[in-house]
Amino acid sequence: MRMICLALLAFAEAVALREAAVASPVQHVLVQMPLLVLAGFMAAWDLKIPRGWAVPLLLAALTVFLFWMLPRNVDWALSPAGETAKYITLPLLLGLPLRLSWPWLGPILRGFLKANALSMLGVLGFLYTHAPVRICNSYLVSAQHDLGFAFLYLAAALACLWAIPVLFGHPRRGPLGAAGCSRCGA
């Protein structure tokens, strides 16, 4: 119940950021969209699925993730149709399946996904900080640069978050393979 409330809260917060998302791609891509994913993630907190569903759901989540990473869809997400699609798919087809499949993913796969996330944030940072053209028509070039740096800062923060438990051991838990969300596992 508490998780459902949190999910609703995250969703409401995301909707409240509508205006800000138009003005700034950082708010759009790195605040509003993650909040929507979080809403789905929280909503599915107490749900369980059989093991066989884990990989298909993960693939669905990855597809949706990649879809919304495409610069053209970031533009599209500001049009009425795109906006509706964003509010529906990010929680339901990304956050929710991710949460459902995560407990079933092995430590190597989790580590692989995390490492990939870091690399891809690096790529995005690379491209957005230095694109000579506007990647998204809806945003200013300077905002695009800010977004690029935001990607890089996020990558650095995640790297620390994920590496510290592996380097120095889990503060509370015993040794565990991949760091991060071990508590929501199993």
Binding site: A115, S119, M120, G122, F126
Partner: peptide, 9 residues
């Protein structure tokens, strides 16, 4: 991880 980033870019 960094190498992959520059490769993909």
């Amino acid at each position: 991880i960094l190498g992959a980033a520059v490769l993909v870019a």
